[in-house]
Amino acid sequence: MSAGRGEVAANRALAAVIRGDDRMASADRVAIYAGMYVARLHEVMKEDYPATAAVLGQSFAEIVREYLVAYPPKKPSVFFAGQSFPAFLRSHPICRRMPYLADLAALERAMVEVFVAPDVAPLDEAALRAISAADWPRLRMRTVSALRLFEVQWRVAALLRDVQSGRRPKKPRRGKKFLLVWRIGGRVYFRETDAAEAAALKLLGRGATFDRVCEKLAGARRDAGSVKFIMATLRRWLREGVIARLGPSPARQSVSA
């Protein structure tokens, strides 16, 4: 009863400001905007979180509605509308049934952000070879700007690949991993990585010297295999384009004085 009275009062308040007519009452006219607000943002969220939407099915619309109440858009671009969705899902009751959902949404959000991150050309092997061996240990490299690295508790990369390939998504396995998301040209890539590589990439991202990055990669290993592993990882980074191109005078600009 009180809800009904509230609605009547709200309609009266609207009618005092908005014109109604025989065709449509003022509340019905306002309702067009209310409906479009939800519909438009639902579309935006579906575009940003296609795998999360596929996994949630029909509940996605209702969860988006709850999200919009908790995190109403505050920025002019719809790019930011879904920014807090992974955090929202993490504390949502749905995560008791689907505990991997927040990790999946975090992966999809990273892909959206990386897609429009600043352009930084990747380093190629020839440029690296031009640096003298003596400068290598104190060489400071950086990761490209279009890169995100974060920890997940569930193996959601496989789930996302299932959705992208049109396969029926399977519930992911539990397993602590790091996810690396990056862009080359206009394409966004992602893969899992382990704690050692993630720590090395984080150091790289902060502009640490090459010898420190190598130490982190080698971890506790101090055998001949560690050099092989470091070289293989470095080659992989170069192939994947995750290291940023050095400045015009690499030796002078990138090695600390």
Binding site: S77, V78, V114, F115, V116, P118, D119, V120, R183
Partner: peptide, 13 residues
């Protein structure tokens, strides 16, 4: 305009 008020990537390219 808003679709291109981004830092980089395919849209600006």
């Amino acid at each position: 305009s808003e679709n291109f008020m981004v830092e980089g990537g395919r849209p600006l390219e």
